[in-house]
Design a protein around this nucleic acid. Sequence first.
DNA 1: TAGTTCCG
DNA 2: TGGT
Length: 216
Amino acid sequence: MITADLFAEANQLQCEQILPEVFLLRSFALQMAPQILNQLDLIAAQSPFRRMQTPGGFFMSAAITNCGDVGWHSDRQGYRYSEIDPQTEQAWPVMPECFRELAETAARQSGFSRFSPDVCLINRYEVGAKMGLHQDKDEKDFSQPIVSVSLGLPIVFQFGGPKRNDPVQRIPLQHGDVIVWGGAARRYYHGVLTLKPGQHPLTGSYRYNLTFRQAR
DNA sequence: TAGTTCCG
DNA sequence: TGGT
């Protein structure tokens, strides 16, 4: 219990504000990373990473899976959350307690005290993969923040505004970094640039991103 | 437009 | 690389 809080203190938590209501918690998940990656293997064994199709019929370059009460899914029919993994036709893997604890603590540190995520969307990036500018708008309650955890290879995160062509901030993210956004920024466009080649001691040539949301 | 390709 |  409260492991993440202890880590935060031990690490002399630095919370950097990128924009109003966008917070960068550098190295926040660093000490938990090995544990998280172990859990990721168990989750992927149950609901494998897969590249999803957009409504337009193209495949996203990042491979995706989920854990939690629901999972985010995309296909030609659109974007949605479902209780069942359409690939396995089973429930999504249960969200590990240490995931929930990390997400809630990061949210609390950023001023969002009542965050209770019901889904963790997991993106796996290989070299060359990216995520175009988009809004997270498939959730019911936009008063709940998003908590995003970076593991493995570094990448450049882009955070824009409410309109697609609003100017974008570029934030280099490293292994263990956590970004939290809410309030007005909850609807802002964001994405990541192309993953560059590299090798990380814990993840090899991959970068993983965990995004915690309250979908329902 | 959670994409790719192409153009400049 | 950035807009699209």
